[in-house]
Simulated scan of single mutants.
Amino acid sequence: MSYAVGIDIGGTKTAIGLIDSAGVVLAKTSLPTDQSVQPDEMVDRIAKAVKELITAQNMKESELLGIGVGAPGPLNTKTGHIVKPPNLPGWWDFPILKSLSRHFDLPITFENDATAAALAEKWVGAAQDAEHFVFITISTGIGAGIYTHGKLLTGATGNAGDVGHFVIDPAGGKCVCGQSGCWEYLASGTAIARQASTLLGREVSSKEAFDLAATGDVAIKELVDGVFRYIGIGCVTLINTFDPELLVIGGGVSQVGAPLFDAIRDYVSEHALNPSGRNTTIVPAALQQDAGLIGAAALVHMTY
């Protein structure tokens, strides 16, 4: 049995796990992503947590195949930099691989977090039998990992799959990226909470919005139905672009379950261009909380 460390860096939390060659999480921990300190200091804390995790399993670093890192984009996997993620402003242009290498004499692999999660779904999740699929995560934002012809499609710098910034409706309001009507501005968990809060004149979470829609609040149900339609539009765009056999949808918004998936399937069955595309299989992600960890470790296990 071989082992790898997976590190999943997020805007509020960094998750760390020790994963074996069967995709089993042997041990894991997490720590707040403290943006009040310099990134190098945060990397020092991450490295310390990794070493403690390894020691607690009575292992040595030399027994590991390597370390995989998933991080939000934009990033540059060629240079090993986190470039400009909106939720990590203090980390812009930060050389994450160089910083981690101060602590470890191991191979370190680095990819966009959604790309890593797609690899996790291929390895031990919902896409094990697929050679052409798109993993979509819908939570705070919207991102995707693309797997086609038996391999990840990552692009020149590792940013392929930044689908949250497809323009869905130019009249839909200005996104943080500067464009108007981006998919994630209209249909992410953040978008649902923002729009529901405006409608009700108070702070509303995306979960509460879904609950209100389910119990018959007419205005909120209309909002949620509109969001589901926007998600369907994005899925049709991905189907028309990549011709996948499968869409795997994860992230917090996917937890609403059947209402979302039924709406997406109905929209796709009417609007995908290719008749075969209208029958694209659309399923929930199999991996939720540990997808980032397993995906980061998969970058090592599925390479070495």
Score class of each variant (00 low, 15 high):
residue 231 I to H: 05
residue 168 I to R: 00
residue 41 E to C: 12
residue 16 I to T: 13
residue 164 G to P: 00
residue 145 G to W: 12
residue 297 A to K: 00
residue 294 I to W: 05
residue 204 V to R: 04
residue 33 T to L: 04
residue 117 A to K: 07
residue 248 V to I: 10
residue 90 G to S: 12
residue 149 H to P: 07
residue 229 R to M: 14
residue 265 R to E: 11
residue 276 S to F: 04
residue 242 F to G: 13
residue 67 I to T: 05
residue 277 G to V: 11
residue 298 A to F: 03
residue 258 A to P: 05
residue 68 G to V: 06
residue 92 W to M: 08
residue 240 N to R: 09
residue 180 S to N: 15
residue 134 V to N: 06
residue 127 A to K: 04
residue 129 D to V: 01
residue 42 M to P: 00
residue 22 A to I: 04
residue 222 E to L: 11
residue 73 G to K: 05
residue 118 A to Q: 03
residue 147 Y to N: 11
residue 24 V to D: 13
residue 47 A to W: 08
residue 178 G to R: 01
residue 154 T to V: 13
residue 187 A to C: 14
residue 301 H to L: 15
residue 232 G to K: 11
residue 242 F to W: 11
residue 68 G to W: 00
residue 249 I to H: 01
residue 187 A to Y: 06
residue 38 Q to F: 13
residue 113 D to L: 02
residue 27 A to F: 03
residue 49 A to Y: 03
residue 249 I to Y: 03
residue 123 W to L: 09
residue 127 A to T: 02
residue 144 A to Q: 06
residue 159 N to P: 08
residue 232 G to D: 08
residue 4 A to H: 04
residue 174 K to I: 14
residue 179 Q to W: 01
residue 94 F to A: 12
residue 93 D to Q: 14
residue 205 S to K: 09
residue 299 L to H: 09
residue 44 D to C: 13
residue 166 F to E: 06
residue 292 G to V: 09
residue 102 R to S: 11
residue 108 I to Q: 05
residue 194 R to M: 07
residue 124 V to T: 15
residue 227 V to E: 06
residue 165 H to V: 12
residue 190 T to F: 12
residue 228 F to P: 07
residue 184 E to G: 08
residue 239 I to F: 02
residue 266 D to G: 11
residue 189 G to R: 06
residue 99 S to P: 12
residue 198 T to M: 12
residue 47 A to G: 06
residue 168 I to V: 15
residue 163 V to C: 14
residue 135 F to T: 08
residue 130 A to P: 01
